[in-house]
């Protein structure tokens, strides 16, 4: 069951061109939860003086992770889209390290999912960024 769900979720992420362009990888899914990661890549640098990844790339990873959490919620969304997402950048991600994110739906109504996410690098005691978002929940009719 878990394996099949992970396989389906992985196929879903791999079918997204922008996720593929950024090399996003789905690491785990659970009920309303998803974990995604992205390798360090020099093409994604936002500050050439430090080599730190651009905030926009971290945003894309967290947005995708939140969407995956919504799609894996038990109430069964047929589709989803971001209504709004706020990201707080706590500290620069360490250059060279993989960025990992975990997103969790903390409340889901018939039409809206409220999601929170955290991103870390190798030092998972200190978050790189946190996000909070609202997503649409599209039901199969």
């Amino acid at each position: 069951m878990t394996e099949q769900r992970t396989r389906i979720a992985r196929q879903f992420i791999e079918a997204i061109p922008h996720a593929r362009a950024l090399g996003m990888q789905l690491d785990a899914v659970g009920d309303g939860v998803a974990e995604l990661s992205m390798a360090y890549d020099e093409r994604f640098i936002g500050d050439p003086s430090t080599g730190v990844i651009h905030g926009g790339a971290v945003f894309a990873l967290m947005d995708t992770c939140c969407g995956a959490a919504v799609m894996n919620h038990a109430t069964g969304a047929a589709g989803t889209a971001t209504l709004d997402l706020r990201i707080d950048y706590m500290r620069p991600a360490t250059p060279g390290q993989r960025i990992r994110t975990r997103a969790e739906c903390y409340h889901v109504t018939r039409t809206v999912a409220f999601v929170r996410a955290t991103a870390t690098d190798d030092d998972d005691a200190r978050p790189v960024a946190t996000a909070s978002a609202a997503f649409t929940v599209e039901r199969a009719t």
């Binding site: 079918a15 997204i16 061109p17 922008h18 996720a19 593929r20 362009a21 950024l22 651009h54 905030g55 926009g56 790339a57 945003f59 894309a60 990873l61 967290m62 947005d63 995708t64 969407g67 889209a81 971001t82 997402l85």
Partner: peptide, 24 residues
């Protein structure tokens, strides 16, 4: 660009690409 797509069925731009564009 094709790599900006987030929903291949609609198709629609990825929210993350849009966010990065706005932040830039």
């Amino acid at each position: 660009a094709d790599k900006l797509i987030g929903n291949p069925i609609l198709p629609a731009l990825h929210g993350g690409g849009t966010a990065a564009f706005l932040e830039i």
